[in-house]
């Protein structure tokens, strides 16, 4: 199914301000700040930055229905070289130990391989958030070998081990391409025990419901992917869909917005608060602006006053202890088992 991005289909929800206003209009049982305060852990403050997440742009070879970035082939935003350099300088001159490269499809960035090479040369752990199908395109056929040569951790999206559900979310034919890519990664040792090459899978619900227990699902997935396709992987991460951008549009169109938000609020789990990724992640937008997480980035909810707002002025000292910008969408990270770019929380 060919999908237009919200931007190019001229949806009002292409505007982050409209998204925030829609979420703010919902009558919810409690505010996120109130829920955190009630746990005795509020207000939410950042600790030291240990992960630098670069969102290198909104270009993607796919246009998934749940995408919180509103990424797609028709998006022109690409991180310019001066921002890339500033990110890498920040990484090289700080004690931040992990670089998490995301997008869009980050591999489409013309400097993707330079980013990986330089970060690895600086001794940093590098994560590539890979949509899998990119590795089946002729121009990117050597991507798995490149990633393996640089010992990059691959975090790959695959919502379901069933074709119909995966294609329903990510587009027709995506499942088959994804399995082909996974087999290629496996042949290089990715996701194979003892190889040292990490291939983690990310599943997020195909619809308006929460993900289940990561541990239980991982066992099911390991069995089913091996039995059906001979595919192995390192870990399975469950991620809750965030009411942002195209997933927000889906919730509105399907009449599920209020019910989904009520579910997130009801499922607030105090045990997730200490491990929220915003406490240790710094998110950089394609234009160099700073955010507490990729979700805030897409809602244009920048770092709060009195902290650096761009990567050009960022220092870990100035960012440590900063208050986190929050909103109703944050209930997505605290619902049930919690959710982060590294899966369930805690």
């Amino acid at each position: 199914m060919a999908l237009l991005t919200l931007l190019n289909s001229r949806s009002p929800l292409a505007d982050p301000v409209e998204q925030r206003a829609m979420l703010a209009r919902l009558a919810l049982a409690r505010t996120f700040g109130g829920a955190v305060s009630a746990t005795g852990r509020g207000p939410l403050l950042a600790s030291d930055v240990s992960v630098l997440q670069m969102n290198v742009g909104k270009r993607c070879n796919q246009a998934c229905r749940h995408c919180h970035v509103d990424a797609g082939p028709d998006r022109p935003e690409v991180m310019p070289p001066e921002v890339v350099n500033a990110c890498l300088r920040f990484l090289e001159t700080s004690r931040v130990d992990t670089l998490d490269v995301t997008g869009g499809a980050p591999e489409l960035h013309p400097l993707f391989r330079d980013i990986v090479t330089r970060a690895r040369a600086a001794g940093r752990h590098v994560i590539d958030r890979c949509n899998l199908t990119i590795a089946t395109l002729p121009s990117y056929a050597d991507l798995p070998e490149f990633l393996a040569a640089h010992q990059v951790e691959v975090i790959a999206s695959l919502p379901s081990f069933a074709a119909r559900q995966t294609d329903a979310q990510r587009g027709a034919g995506v499942f088959e391409s994804s399995i082909a890519a996974l087999r290629r990664f496996n042949r290089l040792g990715y996701g194979v025990e003892g190889s040292g090459l990490t291939l983690n899978l990310v599943t997020n619900p195909v619809g308006a419901f929460l993900p289940g227990s990561q541990q239980a699902l991982e066992a099911d997935w390991r069995r089913e992917l091996a039995r059906r396709y001979g595919v192995t992987f390192s870990r399975l991460f469950t991620i809750t869909n965030m009411p942002i951008s195209r997933y927000l549009q889906y919730l509105v169109d399907s009449g599920n917005l209020q019910g989904y938000m009520d579910r997130l609020v009801t499922a607030f789990n105090p045990a997730t608060v200490d491990g929220l990724m915003c406490r240790f992640t710094l998110s950089v937008g394609w234009d160099g602006r700073l955010y507490d997480c990729d979700f805030n980035q897409m809602l244009d909810l920048g770092t709060r006053a009195a902290t650096p707002h761009t990567i050009f002025e960022a220092t870990t000292a100035a960012l440590a202890g900063r208050p986190i910008a929050t909103g109703p969408h944050c209930f997505g990270c605290t619902a049930g088992n919690g959710s982060s770019c590294g899966g369930a929380v805690g």
Binding site: R164, P205, F209, L217
Partner: peptide, 12 residues
């Protein structure tokens, strides 16, 4: 139905 989906069952 919701619980089954959340616990990872497929529609099939």
């Amino acid at each position: 139905t919701t619980a089954s989906l959340e616990k990872g069952s497929t529609p099939e």
